[in-house]
Amino acid sequence: MKRTHISRRDFVVLTGTAVAVAPGLAGAETLTAEAVLRRIRTELGSEWPSTGPDGLKAGDPSTVVKGIATTAMATLDVLKQAVRENTNLVLTYEPTFYSRADGRAPAAPAPGRGPAGLSTDDPVAKAKRDYIEKNRLVIFRLRDHWQSRKENDMVTGLAAALGWSAHRVKSTDTVYELPKATAEATVALIRSKLNLRAGLRAVGDRKATIRRVLLFPGSMTPTIMWQRYTEVDMIVAGEVREWENTHYAADMFAAGEKRALVTTGRVASEEPGMRLCAEWLKSVVKEVPAKWIGVGDPYWRPTA
């Protein structure tokens, strides 16, 4: 069925207004990316402001969706896998084009961090755009709105991946009370369950007895660290700044506190939550399959 082409700008305007479309209105043959995204928006129910990182990053929203891929970060390898899995709408938690601006005109460069922005002829970005176009992929960033669900899937997903779901203390908080184990053993378990390499780093007392663990996928600020570290035996976060939170955990260790801070890597901590997103989509978009595609731990360490 032929559809009127909807420009990217019109699409943004369209999804920025409160147009509700009943689920299941569109048939499988005509299920466009635009329709899927509108349905996701309606289901998530939260306000959908035009500011913020979420939104269409590449592709034509009138594309008919064959299948949906979810991922923590839409790397080129993830996109290639999405194509192999016969999916063409990719929902990504992190950017696609190497910055929060996601390929848009950059803000002023931060001092000491080198030139900002991405040149229009950058060969890596260009090859990625070409791949997206050639394979008629549609890329949508789904972060704030996925995170706004009261179920807090980024945390419950990470807990499930670690095998800790049954140990949650309160549904309103992200503390888990586990059978006692040493910090070293807990770190080994995290490494093995999340299949991590050099991305995992641990600070603090490796012999500490770990029972209460705070899960914090993504990036953790110093304030949260200061407020919550002594409530638990271990914090497991995605990433922190070394000269802030890591330094705090190291000082706690120097002060004799028997605790540990573990960082898994930001994307690694977000993978299980996006896996849950694919599960959720199966109940919201029944017409096409939804699959999660993993990024894997990007880091390695030389052995020498």
């Binding site: 390898d77 992190e94 910055s99 995605g238 990024v295």
Partner: peptide, 18 residues
């Protein structure tokens, strides 16, 4: 690691893929 001013990690992963 990601969502910053420039995300080296994703850029290098994509370069490797190419």
């Amino acid at each position: 690691e990601a969502d910053g001013g420039f995300d080296n990690v994703e850029y290098v992963l994509d370069a490797v893929s190419l």
